[in-house]
Design a protein around this nucleic acid. Structure first.
Lengths: 203, 203, 203, 203
DNA sequence: CATGAATGAGTTTTCATTCAT
DNA sequence: GATGAATGAAAACTCATTCAT
């Protein structure tokens, strides 16, 4: 990678971090490109040298994190001895992923539903999701994991797990302003333990 | 209730139904007040005689459905003999509720996160949610239900159930455009069965 | 026509006049929608209730004038006795038309060349041009006119006449800032007299 | 001319040719400085070492061509025996000039009308035009030409000729997208022959 | 009460030009 | 001299809300 490219990547990274900082407080719709530029301490026009559009920027944010998490899942959840622990680790990683980027995720979901997402951006998102799903599915397809799952179809189990995590994160977001956020991860883990992982290993 | 009030309520109802029809196809952001007025076959300005703002209208839509569902829950899930069936019925009702109004729900959530929700609207939403939660909690607090739950805290169990349902609905929305929508309710029920309801009645 | 429609047409007319006023001074590109709104003493958004886009507004301006001129041409240039006078009158009307709207005309031409004109707007323009051309051609096809033209093809003659007029107007625009505008119409008429109208009646 | 200057001129020439290539397809407004830099295979910033602004570049393009055409006019239209042939050659050269650069010409005209042309650029343009006009006027002032013109004022005749040519080119641009482009030059020549050149030499 | 015309704040994006390397 | 990354001004357009009729 040339110095040019390195610098470029670094700048892009800085922008994404600035955006992420803002998106922890407000929804993606309430953060303007100008806000992001100001936070990143660059000019508004410069953003468009790194990202072709706002959606593109948001998608990058999500994809980068999706891929980073996929990497972590591969490292920590493949080839581990204990199936139950592996699943819990997977859930924990996924939970953290969505916890950090729920707003971006919801905003892109909305645009996707409205069909206002550019095809390029849409495809990048879809591919990242698929890649992540395939990694998670590989984890759940491991024999040590299989023997402790209630359902032998790993793709279906992946969907179930990610759905549950999403639901808990959404629940947290909702309650954030009414009640103090509870220790949702622990609760989530308990649900997974009871609902996904069988109590006794199957013969 | 005077004739005036009756007429008023009827009109309001018609508007809400018109809005609901549009919101089944597009996200709340992609539906303008003008669209709703046209669909309801009334003037744009008239909307504001029934609802103080767009958010107010959306909140009404959600609240009305929340309360309608709460009523159904009370009817069908209180005083039934079998705990497990009761829980499944509760899940089914809740699932249907979110399935129909996911877009509105997500849009209001976004605005709530941005803090751009008027206090009045915010409070109405919060109250309806609480009311619904209290009904659901009452259902889960029934002795026949308690003895089949993994956790004896009914409020916590309510949160868990609603979270899981939300997650499955979001998952459906996401996949709607990539994969054929699976029979998610059945899958959801199985998860609840395994993860929430204990296999053998406790002591 | 209902009172509503009348009012609407009147407002539209006022806006077009305001736009025309500004476009006499600056090119269409240098006049913003906000400028037009201010000149018409209405809100920026209101413009979009009368015209779907800036191009639409400009096209209306041109089409309206094109049709008005076509009407005048029909009145004054059909059924007149003298062919030569008829042609000169046609040229005068056309000259006045382009003189007033050269900037709009050039701006729409540019957009047409770039292919950035919406199809609807493009079609409206094309149709108006064709209509005008057909009226002019009808004028030139009259026997009294035919016998004094150098070329018997009236469609071709129409093109020639309009081209010459355009050229003279462009020439005026160019020189406007360097030399005092000469009496171009007289010069134009002389050219037409010599180049288009035969000296002696044929046959 | 030093080697430095020669190299500089050569580079400038390459840039102008690159720009001309792009401007044959799109209007000057639709061609960005970046496009030109890419086409010329140089850096964007480098353009500004050769031309002080986009308008300056466009003006150079036009002026260069104007001067080149002026040279050709001098070569081919001065000292020829036949007046009528001389005029037709002049028209043909002028037609080719505008045919190639109509977009640039229109764009600069627009800017001139808006008063957004820098004085330096404006002056260069004006001077080139004047120079060209003086050459054309010299051609028309030749005795052999004079005796076949309808009007003895050569400056006025120059204006008439250039105007007619401009009109025909504009007409072509307009129709390019609606009708097949006709053989306009021949038509133009015929008009000139009839309208400008007298049929019999004046006594 | 019903209406819909009027409003203008707010956002994304483009692109000529500058300047540090 | 050459480069291209950075800049920010500018403009079209949308839509929730208001208000005169």
């Amino acid at each position: 990678m040339s110095r040019r490219e390195q610098e470029r990547n670094f700048r892009q990274e800085l922008i994404l971090r600035a955006a992420a900082r803002l998106l922890e407080e407000r929804s993606a719709d309430a953060v303007t490109m100008e806000d992001i530029a100001r936070e990143a301490e660059i000019g508004k026009g410069t953003l468009y040298q790194y990202f072709s559009s706002k959606d593109d920027l948001l998608a990058h944010l999500l994809c980068r994190q999706l891929e980073e998490t996929a990497r972590q899942v591969q490292e920590r959840c493949l080839g581990q001895g204990d199936g139950s622990t592996t699943v819990k680790e997977l859930v924990a990683l996924h939970y953290r992923l969505y916890r950090r980027h729920a707003r971006v995720f919801l905003d892109l979901l909305r645009r996707q539903l409205d069909g206002t997402l550019e095809p390029g951006v849409f495809n990048r998102l879809r591919d990242s999701h698929r890649h992540y799903a395939s990694v998670a599915t590989a984890v759940l397809a491991q024999p040590a994991v299989q023997e402790c799952l209630v359902d032998r179809n790993p793709a279906r189990m992946t969907r179930v797990l990610t759905n549950i995590v999403k639901g808990f994160v959404i629940g947290e977001l909702e309650s954030n302003e009414t009640e103090p956020p509870a220790d949702n991860l622990a609760l989530l883990q308990r649900v997974v333990e009871g609902g996904i992982i069988v109590r006794e290993k199957r013969g």
